[in-house]
Amino acid sequence: MRQYFGRKALIYALTFFVAVTINWMIPRFMPGDPIQGLVARAQVADPASVDAMRAHYTNLFGLDVPWWQQYVNFWAALLRGDMGISIWAFPTPVTDLIIRAVPYTLGLLIPAILLSWWAGNRFGAFAARRKWLDNTVLPIGYLLTATPYMWLALLLAWTLAILAGIFPVSHAYSFAVQPSWSWEFLGSLAVHWVLPFSSLFLVMFGGWAIGMRNLIIYELESDYANYLQALGARSRLVRGYAFRNAVLPQITGLALQLGTIVAGALVTEIVFSYPGIGHLILQAINNQDFFLLQGAFLFIVLGVLVANFIIDVVYTLVDPRTRIRMQGNAV
């Protein structure tokens, strides 16, 4: 058991190391000079002040020391939780901005992921091998997974918010109420949450339903299912066993999909001006705020790694075979 999780933890630690290194490398080895861009943006004509600005920015980014020392400094700052100061929301530290945005992103993502996974699996398993349902579920499911997250968000915002006026179009709560623990504020929060949540939910739902439908068909073809059927077991029972076997690849699938799902949440937030990480990233890009952008990137990587680890733990709990293999000789 310890060996298995040790190996996993090693991979995740290495991944984090690689991600931080990429994060450090990109601005330094990219063609073009980011400082040049920052100076140019200020539109100062006087050469003396241009030089002063250059020196200031070079110092600010810590670019005036040898590269290996820059790398060590980068890690040291990171471990202190210091990701620099945002240019867009000067002088708020990047860490503060991210901590403020995280609850909104997680509040959208976690319910959307868990509910769509559960509902999609149930529905896909139910539809498999039922002629009529299968023929409707399959095309709809494929259309849903093929839909870009932001387009479904746009469609929902346009139809349900602008045309029908049922839900608000943007932001996490109405600016008429103050953030507090009052019912009024929570209600406003909930109403604003429905559309971004639904668009995330629907796209993911399609993917899980199709995945489960295909897996169930494979399982129903297998020997144990045929044998059970030959014994005269009720189809409910057979399907129950098939479902339990088909859920395992779906758990792995969830781990593989996490990156795409997070990206989907980012663009959904942008459509609804929802004040989460995606909104921060958009502001960072529009304002050339590279500290903020890189902070958000590191945070996303960290979040995905933690989620992967949780999925690993869940997998060992759900699948008895991994547990037995771990007790014997660890993989």
Partner: peptide, 14 residues
């Protein structure tokens, strides 16, 4: 495990 789209965002931004 690395969310590649996040990497792409950083690269493209520069």
């Amino acid at each position: 495990v690395i969310p590649t789209l996040a990497v792409l965002i950083i690269i493209a931004a520069y």
